Amino acid sequence: MPRPSRRSEVCATAARLFREYSYASATMDLIADEVGLNKGTLYHYYPGKSAILYELLSKQVDATLEFLDRVPAEGTITERTRELVRLQVDHVSSKHDEVVVFFQELPWVEKHLPPEQAADLRRRVRRYEHFTKQLLTAGVRSGEFRPIDVAMIMSSVVGILGYVPVWFRGATGKAQVTLVQELTDFVMNGIIAVPLAETSPPAPPKPARRSGAAAGGRRSRA
């Protein structure tokens, strides 16, 4: 029988090492040693370190683009945006090394990858950005969202998502469910429009009116 492929193990190990040492410092020799393969066998799976990086980044972009297709076409903008945020929080809370590497190395893809691969990644990232900005803009126009700076809010949400795998280590499924719910609520509460009645301070109580008899009594004693 043919020996089972260890490609997924190589990829996962590389993600951990890229996260720990950075892509520039983690070598193919180090990856081979960690996986327990000789260097020749490692090159059988990947022709070079950049091929591993491209696969890691591509998987994260593709997973995010799949979420766009899962956002309901119907419903309010608030409901659709909430679902997009929820899907992303759920994903980043379960993919630790891979997500960290994505945000860590994406700024340097033009340096580390062939031009066509770097351009392909940027194109797919722009598709996500375009979809998200359109959703936020539609929410502002409909009055469901407050008058936000769409580009700034989108970048802020992405920053929140990118930091989750740095600190979150949910030991139980319940912890992850709680995180997804709380963080989704946190993001949405920051952009939804609050009805005027909830933002206006309560009116001060009016002074009690004196009865006519009491007022008249005071006048007669004067």
Rank of each mutant, 00 (worst) to 15 (best):
M1T: 12
R3E: 09
V10Q: 02
V10Y: 00
A14K: 02
A14H: 01
R16K: 15
L17D: 07
S22K: 00
Y23N: 04
A24L: 09
S25K: 13
L30Y: 01
I31T: 03
I31R: 04
D33Q: 12
T41A: 14
H44R: 14
G48Q: 08
K49L: 02
K49G: 02
A51Q: 08
E55P: 00
L56D: 04
L57V: 06
D62W: 04
D62A: 11
A63H: 08
T64Y: 06
L65I: 00
E66M: 06
F67N: 07
D69C: 08
P72L: 03
P72N: 10
E74T: 12
G75H: 02
T78V: 12
E79G: 06
E79V: 03
L84W: 09
V85K: 07
R86E: 09
R86A: 08
Q88S: 13
D90L: 10
V92D: 07
S93H: 05
S93M: 07
S94P: 03
H96D: 05
V101S: 00
F102C: 08
K111W: 12
H112M: 12
L113I: 01
P114W: 05
P115N: 08
Q117S: 11
A119M: 11
D120L: 12
D120A: 15
V125T: 11
V125E: 14
R127W: 09
R127C: 09
L135Q: 05
L136Y: 05
E144N: 08
R146A: 10
V150F: 02
S155Y: 08
S156C: 12
V157M: 10
G159C: 03
G170Y: 01
A171P: 04
T172H: 00
G173D: 06
K174H: 11
A175M: 14
Q176R: 10
T178Q: 12
T178W: 14
L179W: 06
Q181G: 04
V187E: 06
G190R: 03
A193L: 02
E198V: 03
E198K: 10
P204L: 07
K206T: 14
R209M: 15
S211F: 15
A215V: 14
G217W: 15
S220W: 14
S220K: 14
R221E: 15
A222K: 12
